[in-house]
Design a protein around this nucleic acid. Sequence first.
DNA 1: GTTAGCACTCATCTCATGCGAGTGCTAATA
DNA 2: TATTAGCACTCGCATGAGATGAGTGCTAAC
Lengths: 345, 345
Amino acid sequence: MLTNRQLLILQVTVDEFIQFAQPVGSRQLSKKKEVPFSPATIRNEMADLEELGYLEKTHTSSGRIPSEKGYRFYVDHLLIPQLATTEDMKQIQSVFKERISETEKVIQKTAMILSELTSYTSILLGPDVRKHRVKRFSIVPLSSDSAVAIIITDSGHVENRLFQLPEGLTTSDIEKTVNILNEQLVGVHLHDIQRVLEKETAVLLKRHIGRYGELMSSFGVAISSPQEEKVFYGGKTKLLHYPEFSDLHKAQGLITMMDQANQISKLFSPNQVGIHIRIGSENTLLEMEDCSVITASYTVGEEQMGSIAIIGPTRMDYRRVVTLLDLMSGDLSRELTRILGGPRS
Amino acid sequence: MLTNRQLLILQVTVDEFIQFAQPVGSRQLSKKKEVPFSPATIRNEMADLEELGYLEKTHTSSGRIPSEKGYRFYVDHLLIPQLATTEDMKQIQSVFKERISETEKVIQKTAMILSELTSYTSILLGPDVRKHRVKRFSIVPLSSDSAVAIIITDSGHVENRLFQLPEGLTTSDIEKTVNILNEQLVGVHLHDIQRVLEKETAVLLKRHIGRYGELMSSFGVAISSPQEEKVFYGGKTKLLHYPEFSDLHKAQGLITMMDQANQISKLFSPNQVGIHIRIGSENTLLEMEDCSVITASYTVGEEQMGSIAIIGPTRMDYRRVVTLLDLMSGDLSRELTRILGGPRS
DNA sequence: GTTAGCACTCATCTCATGCGAGTGCTAATA
DNA sequence: TATTAGCACTCGCATGAGATGAGTGCTAAC
């Protein structure tokens, strides 16, 4: 168990390092008025903290920097929540003042503002389309052998796929198909479409449509190909300005990673509630070993819709980011609930 | 006018520099069997070429590197076209073998392959949606006060916008509107929609729809907001591996630029035909002063649809890139023409 | 228990030095 | 007259030796 003095010194050390990105020396700390001890005392305490694994030295005669364990302890026990400043509040409000009606634009704007306020990179995972329900289904023939299938969800999202029309399919066949599909699919979650198509609907279609087999082989594939979660970035390159990435290789790895959507989803733990912090190598990605990720999620009505993440260097300003993220995820949830009119039946 | 020997030396110098990214010395050249002159002779010629502005020195006693004027001369007069290797041909064919039916996927894959083959970054400007024609128009109400407007183009592209429904608009009002819009808009270019809406169609709508004014103020804005040209990247971060960008600041500028879609369009000259090369500062963007951009365009039927660009360092392998770009733009044009079935009426 | 003092460590900066690749010029050569 | 060999010179760069200073650990005094 740490003594109060050790707690104080650990906290101040982390705070200083977060601010200046330089190893923290005993003299430097003793000058601060919150720390009424001599450098020698501080040195002793720091040596103990190092032995316990909370602090590290970059070389024998340097100041101390927090270890990952140190950061972990800091965010778990020493992080005093902070009230957002009115200035920040104002900025956040500004996203929602315009009453934008398209969810994607709201999310994009949220990403921007979050990055502006924190000076880190923000990543927002768009609403998981598969949780939306079909509102309307439609097929538009383009030529004698191709057509577009369109699904409109209750959230106003539109999915579309091109597919090949089997030869000899009549216009009335298509009309019938659309009618059947609308009857069957409206209200179904997008991730259930394929299942429904294969079971209930298949029987009906088979009965009415001549070219059923060929139609389904082409159309079924098109409709069931996975919809990707959309990723929105704010300040994608902001991280590069921090001294920890002045190493070109690290910077490269980071940039490359951010351009790979499948990597990004690894940063989020699915279905978590509340704010989560992952420090350094706690993110399984090698490229992220000098980064911390703070995630939150937003909801529409009661349902969890998407996630928000802020990526910064491990010495990021956890306090501020947690405050902002908390605020923002709440406001975003409210706004999206307003737009989408709450959970629909 | 340059002598043959000067031409030879300029050519070989540029070739060497392209390959090794190191200043080229006279001794180095004289060792090559294409250059049967002594270092001293080469030095004299190089001195002349420098005076003429084709070569530069990085410092007094370094070898020579090509100046922008040198590159310009090289690509204009010394670039011997090359036949693509069968290996390259095979790779390129592979994009089209799968007979993907969605244009966007074909373009994305083209971008990937181009970047793989060249080891530079490729940027493809997607088909300009505004040149497409309306195939079908539709409105799907989501709730009592909002709806999605959907435009399907003859190319199978789908545009959609959310908009607010004026209060008290009946279902039959919406149906009428959709009917009128379909009658009026089918076959119209997307970039003409707004004009048509404001003129011919306005009269008709006014006559039939009660809430005409309110509907149009909300709907008109939604439908006329500009559609962006989609940008596809291949190997976005490949450039960072070249030594000319080992300077973090330059790398940063480049990455930042590539994330700004509006900057990207500046790299393309609109409506050009054939292959264009822009060297270093010929690209107006400051971030691109160490880059060259080679652009081509692809067509569907007779109509120009989009552009292809390869971005590399100024010392890029012009010969190879030109060859590949030429081949690829032709093949892509053919493939898209096949998919979209040529120009539609 | 706390602090002052002191010897010690180590990264970093600066400066001198030497090396080598490459040049320009001049004189010799074909 | 065009080409080449020879040579002095330039300059970037790598290397290594101090000097500097921030910071530590340990011991002894308060």
